[in-house]
Design a protein around this nucleic acid. Structure first.
Lengths: 216, 216
DNA sequence: TGTACATCAGTGAACGCGCGTTCACTGATGTAC
DNA sequence: TGTACATCAGTGAACGCGCGTTCACTGATGTAC
């Protein structure tokens, strides 16, 4: 019987999580992941440096685990964001507010994702970027169902989805620069990104999607 | 007479530049600026570690000097990019090609700007972000001159300019991930970002800019 | 249930290394006469 | 022009420190009977 089994395992997972949380917390301030030391992380987590090796081979491996964890958070956010996204002004605004609220609630994870997307180790960087690409594709698939977009080429749907996602990502960079509270600046940002999305969607109404030209 | 004067000064400037170039070169690979050490930079520059202090108080000060230098490059690029930007398909494409070519010609500076924009020390980060904001404002002023946009509110012009600049910045992140040569992927990227800009400009044609509502 | 042995998460001492910074210095360049 | 002194960019030795990693260990948890 394996009834009693799991006390050890449970404690091990707890320490592992403490290491991940410690790293994330240390990244809150000025520090970038690549300048984070193994000893800092274990100190913050309240274990001895050598305990680190029971969980990760090195800091790179912890970095990838942090991407996994953050990406799980990201998926929750984006899934919520795409619930019934009918391109009406009201709904755009509400979606943006939802996304911003989620991101504020998971500041540390998103700060990590945003920073490492541009500047991190290539393994971490490409993991994040492919996650974004995946989300763009999913959005493109969603968009394909809308009346005006049914005959668009896959390429153009990707193009439009990429524009929308890009607008949101740029705005999130700015959101994360702001202090956590729901400030006036944050409301102004929500207002602006909503307008930007509306601008793109208006453009889509006029877009003539042409199939790729075939030369003779 | 101060005719002979300047040999010493000239050599000093040369060493200073060697330090900046060394730092930039070291950033080409995986390393982020914050994980760069003073000794690495002096080693790469071919001087003794203590010589560093004749030029910069610490690595932070060198970082800001690197922002200055990169921003000077950025200004050249953006000035060139805005020469006669009439929103016609051909001209959009050519502008994008120009920007991409400039960025490729100054890969290291732009890689530095893009990475530090998201993840660097706050002093460096905010210097870069305010530079981007300045450029958006300049573009907004330019846009105000176009027939269809003359009666737009300042706020909406900023919003539109922000969208356009955001689209380009997002694309540049991808460009910098590619190897330096003019690859097929690069051409595809130029194609896509041109379409994205066209989409936004189409949207602008339908946009109804309203003055801020005054509650009574 | 009770006992005897195995496992293994976390400990603590120790190591060699590169780091940032200090200091007194050297010798080419600059200046005064 | 020629000489004597001042300046100062770059040198090289030395320092104390935090780092990543090794190793033998401890004692609570797990397993077999």
């Amino acid at each position: 019987m394996a009834a009693g089994t799991g006390i050890r395992e449970e404690r091990k997972l707890k320490t592992r999580q403490a290491l991940l949380d410690a790293a994330l917390k240390l990244l809150e301030g000025e520090q970038s992941f690549s300048s984070l030391s193994l000893r800092e992380v274990t100190r913050e987590a309240g274990v001895v440096p050598t305990a680190f090796y029971r969980h990760f081979r090195d800091m790179d491996e912890l970095g990838l685990a942090l991407v996994d964890e953050s990406v799980r958070t990201l998926r929750q956010v984006t899934r919520a964001a795409r619930q019934g996204t009918l391109p009406t002004e009201q709904i755009i605004r509400r979606s943006v507010e939802t996304i911003v609220a989620y991101v504020q609630a998971n500041r540390l994870h998103f700060q990590f994702l945003m920073r490492e997307r541009a500047g991190g180790r290539s393994q971490v960087r490409s993991a994040i970027r492919s996650e974004v690409r995946l989300f763009i594709s999913e959005l493109a698939t969603d968009l394909a169902r809308f009346p005006g977009l049914r005959e668009w080429s896959t390429e153009d749907l990707q193009m439009m989805a990429g524009t929308l996602v890009g607008v949101v990502i740029n705005a999130l960079q700015d959101v994360l620069e702001l202090p956590p509270g729901r400030s006036a600046e944050e409301l102004a940002l929500v207002e602006m990104v909503s307008k930007q999305l509306r601008l793109v969607i208006l453009g889509a109404g006029l877009w003539k999607s042409r199939p790729p030209e075939v030369s003779g």
